[in-house]
Computed example of a mutant assay.
Amino acid sequence: MLWVPAVVALALVVLPVVGLLTRSDLTRLPSLLVRPSSLSALRLSLETAALSTVACVLLGVPLAVVLARSRVPGIRFLRSVVLLPLVLPPVVGGLALLYLLGRKGFLGELIGWATGAQVPFTTAAVVIAQTFVAMPFLVVSLEGALRGAGDRYERIAATLGARPWTVFRRVTLPLLLPALGSGVVLSFARALGEFGATITFAGSLEDVTRTLPLEVYQQAEVDVDSAVALALLLIVVAVVVIALARPRALEGVRS
């Protein structure tokens, strides 16, 4: 009985991609993909997604540990706030970032006064927007792994005299490695496909903020064949990233 809904679910994922393939002009595909604007958007997408993934790891790992191990009052509320980008429409997140870091935002005014720089509509804004929407995926993966593993080994290490940093480095991090691999893949893939928060907070400036999803949207209004070709390219890149990285994460889980 499970085969019927399983086949329907698989069709729901696969058939739209088949629809793109049937709509694409394969004879024009190479020429469409090597356009300067397409290559620039692909390069910017890969660079910003990589940077935002690094930011997710640097910020998300400590946050996940705090959420999983802390017993302070209000931690459940903080957990809900951290996961808010998972359920918010990305454009709402983009507006929130704009009114925080924009020229009239309270933090944006402070940055402008101190440095004379503006954050919105820059490549840095793309990285911030991608980090905002992608980091919860990493935090969810890591927090779930930590809560499932429990804190027995960490407590034992502490009773043996290990300092907190030593416990984190020698016990907690090894426990996180399998989930970290999975979380990094999810974060990178989410950042690569980010659209709503990016276009709202960073705009769509060629060679500066126009990532591949924004280029697809731009081309859809003027050249459908080009938009379809770029959409297929984005799908291929995402599938390759997941196919290369996901098995390693699963191997860590099995071990």
Rank of each mutant, 00 (worst) to 15 (best):
W3S: 11
P5V: 05
A6I: 10
V7P: 03
V8D: 00
V14Y: 02
P16L: 00
V18W: 14
T22N: 10
R23L: 15
R23V: 02
S24H: 03
L26F: 13
T27D: 06
L29Q: 07
P30M: 09
L33V: 02
V34R: 11
P36C: 04
S37P: 08
S38T: 06
A41V: 01
L42W: 00
R43M: 04
R43K: 15
L46S: 12
L46V: 13
L51D: 02
V54C: 12
L59D: 00
P62Y: 01
V66I: 06
R76S: 15
S80P: 05
V81E: 00
V82A: 11
L86C: 06
L86M: 13
V87A: 15
V91T: 15
V91Q: 03
V91F: 12
G93H: 05
G93M: 10
L95G: 02
L95D: 00
A96Y: 05
A96F: 13
L97A: 13
L97Q: 07
L98T: 08
L100P: 01
L101T: 05
L107W: 10
I111T: 07
A114F: 07
T115Q: 11
V119C: 03
V119F: 06
P120Y: 05
P120T: 11
F121H: 03
T122C: 06
A125I: 04
V126I: 10
I128E: 03
A129M: 06
Q130F: 14
Q130L: 06
T131H: 15
V133Y: 03
A134G: 12
V139C: 10
S141I: 02
G144D: 12
L146Q: 12
G148E: 14
G148K: 14
A149W: 02
D151S: 15
R152M: 13
Y153T: 09
E154Q: 13
E154V: 11
A158D: 07
A158W: 05
A158V: 08
T159A: 15
L160N: 07
G161F: 12
A162F: 13
R163F: 01
P164F: 03
W165D: 04
T166F: 04
T166R: 12
F168P: 00
F168M: 06
R169F: 02
R169C: 04
R170K: 09
T172S: 04
L173N: 03
L173R: 09
P174I: 09
L175F: 01
P178Q: 07
P178S: 10
L180T: 04
V185Q: 03
V185A: 14
A189D: 02
E194F: 10
E194Q: 08
F195C: 01
F195L: 13
T198A: 04
T198Q: 01
I199N: 02
L205F: 11
L214R: 04
E215M: 03
V216Q: 01
V216I: 15
Y217F: 15
Q218N: 09
Q219T: 00
D223H: 00
V224D: 03
D225R: 04
A229V: 08
A229M: 08
L230T: 04
L230C: 13
L232P: 15
L234D: 04
L234H: 09
V236L: 14
V237E: 02
V240F: 05
V240M: 07
V241C: 05
V241L: 11
A245Y: 06
R246K: 14
R248C: 05
A249N: 12
A249H: 12
L250W: 12
E251N: 10
E251G: 15
G252N: 05
G252Q: 08
G252Y: 05
S255P: 02
S255A: 15
